[in-house]
Nucleic acid binder design. Structure first.
Length: 461
RNA sequence: GGCCCGUUCGUCUAUCGGUUAGGACACCAGGUUUUCAACCUGGGAAGAGGGGUUCGACUCCCCUACGGGCUGCCA
């Protein structure tokens, strides 16, 4: 039983997406359950829009979860109940120190170069001396010895208990902190494997103390390194694309993102290009690396091209539709869709992304008269138009098959004593209005004899 | 400051004490060619630095440097 537990304070981050992916692969590969929990205990920063964005992002990535997403905030009564139980068990205590007092303590500690860990004077106070005042509930953490984390990725990590303070479990307003809530929820939800970012590694030690305080079993932990930007710095807004939605808008297929993200910080020998089924079969926590990986768009692009080439036509068409919607572009008409699907065979293995594919598909998406771009205009100089003029009658009689057209074009080139390229260029310009397109005979095949000759006619003006 | 984690080609990585340190992406040169993509051939490219341990270290230990995390009544 694995889970993904994002806090809804923004869009789904590419690093968060990989964490979700690892959990999903791990759970699905072992016939386990994959749960979703929204960590919305910070009311000031959590928004429903962000929750929606995260759900949308996971759906787009193709990561399905079991059951309804759990709201952590909705479980606040349960968290408070556990805090009271800890109080009753003597593993937690009420602390009446005010934020001002604590801040003053830290100020002094910093000035004197001492540890800023706050040691509450209320830890061992007699309840009879408790004032009737606002208070928090703190964990009564062990002061000596050490807390050991057995981590599937990081190995055995040891923390000295005197480096860990008595963290707040229940705030003075009665709401739980993340540290308490995450433990209670993981326990109640039956989460057996916690796979999350290594920014939580130190927290794991504190959380282990809560598990101990309640006498609960500790889950298997796997703290995975963060993803860095191309410059090796930690990912931030200035790196450009950090939100998953931006990758959707750039026209990468979700399968390629899954494949790419999976290979970031995890490997299975020399395998680079693989399916979800293979990833699920191969994925194991022990193969996750301990060092952070950088994003490399070149590699993503290469993988993207291979996934597009390998995709079934129907699926490709559907995903192009999703891509168009993500960018706010107009959807393809019924006619454009069927024309595009006829052309996919000569398009899918030469495109790296959806916009790349769409650009090369212009010849079949545009209707007459096609508007040539600058390069195409240059290719339609008078001499070239003359060639096209001579070619037209040959096309009237050519057999309209791949072989027939190749033969006809070849024969025409030979008869004129020119190279094939001298003919292909102008043809490309006339048929597509672009100079980067699929092969000319493929375009002619897709367009048909009538349309082909009509477009050449348009170009001859 | 304290504690914790990390460091193999430009990038992602293989290696799990004995290898000419392998692969992929990217790059360079050549080939194929009808533009793009693809493809073929070849090439350059790495163990952060310093100490140990060992017959032998990329691999184990220590130190340093650099990067990152935690150190909140944020998550």
């Amino acid at each position: 039983m694995a889970r993904f537990a994002p806090s809804p304070t923004g869009y789904l981050h590419i690093g968060g997406a990989r964490t979700a992916l690892f959990n999903w692969l791990f759970a699905r590969g072992r016939k386990g359950r994959f749960l979703l929990r929204i960590e919305d205990t910070d009311r000031a920063r959590s928004t429903p829009e962000a929750t929606q964005a995260i759900l949308d992002g996971l759906r787009w990535l193709g990561l399905d979860w079991d059951g309804e997403p759990v709201s952590q905030y909705a479980r606040r009564e349960r968290h408070a109940e556990v805090a009271r139980q800890m109080l009753a068990r003597g593993t937690a205590y009420k602390c009446f120190s005010t934020p001002e007092e604590i801040e003053a303590f830290r100020e002094r500690a910093r000035a004197e170069g001492r540890s800023t860990l706050f040691l509450s004077p209320w830890r061992d106070a007699d309840p009879a001396t408790h004032p009737d005042a606002p208070h928090v509930i703190r964990l009564k953490a062990p002061r000596s010895g050490e807390t050991v984390i057995e981590d599937e990725v990081q190995g055995r990590v040891t923390f000295r208990n005197d480096q860990l303070d008595d963290m707040v479990c229940l705030r003075s307003d009665g709401t739980p902190t993340y540290m308490l809530a995450v433990v209670v929820d993981d326990h109640d939800m039956g989460v057996t494997h916690v796979i999350r970012g290594d920014d939580h590694l130190t927290n794991a030690a504190r959380q282990a103390q809560v598990y101990h305080a309640m006498g609960w079993d500790i889950p298997v932990w796997a703290h995975i390194p963060l993803i860095f930007g191309e410059d090796g710095r930690k990912l931030s807004k200035r790196h450009g694309a950090v939100g998953l939605h931006e990758y959707a808008a750039m026209g990468y297929p979700p399968s390629a993102i899954r494949n790419y993200l999976c290979r970031l910080g995890w490997s299975h020998g020399d395998d680079e290009f693989f399916t979800d089924a293979q990833a699920m079969a191969w994925f194991d926590l022990k193969d996750i690396h301990r060092s952070p990986a950088r994003l490399d768009f070149r590699k993503l692009e290469s993988l993207s091209g291979r996934h597009i080439a390998a995709m079934e036509d129907a699926r490709l068409l559907a995903e192009i539709g999703t891509y168009l919607a993500a960018t706010g572009a107009a959807p393809l008409s019924q006619a454009q869709q069927s024309a595009l699907s006829r052309a996919l065979y000569c398009l899918k293995d030469r495109a790296k992304t959806f916009p790349d594919l769409l650009e090369k598909a212009r010849f079949v998406l545009e209707s007459r008269p096609v508007e040539p771009d600058e390069a195409a205009r240059r290719a339609l100089d008078p001499v070239s138009r003359g060639i096209l003029g001579e070619l037209t009658p040959q096309l009237q009689n050519a057999s309209w098959t791949k072989e027939g057209l190749d033969a006809a074009l070849q024969a025409f080139a030979t008869a004129r004593g020119t190279g094939f390229g001298r003919i292909a260029g102008p043809l490309r310009a006339a048929l597509a209005g672009r100079m980067v397109t699929p092969g000319v005979t493929d375009m002619m095949l897709v367009l048909g004899r009538e349309e082909t000759i009509a477009r050449i006619g348009d170009a001859l003006g």
